[in-house]
């Protein structure tokens, strides 16, 4: 069954325009100018139940606007959307019982209350009886290891602890779909990894559908099996992570430490990225040259150490963002 279904989803904002300086301010009083910005432009996609989807794109691509339309925060200007078979515009409250949201940049918890009191408040919001609420808090507290700080006011918690509490608060009613909007923003690598593990566990144990937006490639690589890339309000790529890597990982990075300083002769398919003393970093385009041929060209006898790796996913995604094809929606 489809957890999320969006067809031709669109949202336009009217943005006030003003010439620079005081003169512009005065002019805008008498002749106000507005410009229409199409934040989401006919986006269509669907998400299966239990799927973990990465919905990514550069700043201003329309990710958050899409999430806000899916959760009933914003009214779409066009198109049709259903989450768990419910129209967020017509039945916002009914949908809210079945979805959870975590906005990394916006706190939902009361900072002067302890996580426990916050969870009790959220349980009341979702009409969960007292005894059941206590049982769920205990269960989630154990899963997310909140024991040490569950009775400390939220304002005294570290960012990582707070995000864990935000996620627990959004799970108190056992949502079927969880929307995570940059959940690991500002966290250190250890806490990030911890949060990712917890999200994975949640997906596995409760079969929760995860809709994730993030600028952190680690989140996407480690959590998601499918990726949707949006740019300028349009979907430019909707594919599995496996396919993305297969189609776009046709370049290899070769890092070598040579016995002595050498200047490599230019060759089609090999690009020298960095050359410093005996250290050389190359990019081999495997569509133009096999990796074996590239190594033969380098003269392996003089190589002291070698490392061959894929191009980081981050670079691939940046390429897709930048590509004109992408901007035109040609990759979708």
């Amino acid at each position: 069954m489809k957890a999320i279904q969006a067809e031709g989803l669109a949202k336009t904002f009217r943005v006030k325009q003003k010439e620079k300086g005081m003169k512009g301010s005065i002019q805008s009083v008498f002749h106000p100018k507005t410009e229409e910005v199409r934040a989401v432009d006919g986006v269509s996609f669907s998400v299966e139940e239990g799927e973990v989807l990465a919905f990514i794109g550069p700043n201003g691509a329309g990710k958050s606007t899409t999430i806000k339309m899916l959760t009933g925060i914003l009214y779409p200007d066009g198109g049709k959307v259903e989450v768990l078979g419910i129209d967020p515009v017509k039945k916002r409250k009914q949908l809210a019982y079945q979805i959870g949201t975590v906005f990394g940049q916006k706190e939902q918890l009361w900072t002067h209350l302890t996580p426990y009191d916050n969870f009790k408040f959220f349980a009341a919001i979702y009409d969960i009886p007292e005894r059941e609420a206590d049982a769920r808090i205990r269960e989630l507290g154990e899963t997310f290891a909140l024991g040490a700080f569950i009775n400390t006011p939220v304002r005294n918690l570290s960012l990582g602890q707070r995000i864990r509490c935000e996620i627990v608060a959004s799970l108190i009613h056992r949502p079927s779909v969880l929307f995570l909007d940059e959940p690991t923003i500002g966290l250190d690598p250890v806490v990030k990894e911890n949060i990712r593990q917890l999200i994975k566990q949640m997906n596995k144990e409760f079969h929760t559908t995860i809709f994730l937006t993030s600028h952190d490639i680690g989140d996407i690589e480690k959590l998601c099996k499918r990726i949707i890339i949006v740019n300028a309000g349009r979907i430019v790529l909707d594919d599995s992570m496996q396919n993305l890597k297969y189609h776009y990982l046709n370049k290899k990075i070769v890092e070598m430490k040579l016995q002595e300083e050498t200047t490599l002769a230019p060759m089609q398919g090999i690009a020298v990225l960095k050359e410093k003393g005996c250290h050389v970093k190359l990019e081999v385009d495997t569509t133009k040259m096999r990796i074996n041929d590239a190594l033969a060209h380098i003269d392996a006898e003089h190589v002291e150490d070698i490392n061959i790796s894929n191009v980081p996913l981050e670079n691939i995604i940046m390429e897709i963002y930048k590509s004109e094809k992408g901007a035109d929606g040609g990759l979708a």
Binding site: I73, K93, Q94, A96, Y97, I99, F103, K106, Q108, I125
Partner: peptide, 12 residues
Amino acid sequence: SGKLDAYLVMPK
């Protein structure tokens, strides 16, 4: 400042 978001995702 967009602070209505938190209330709009609640079933109340």
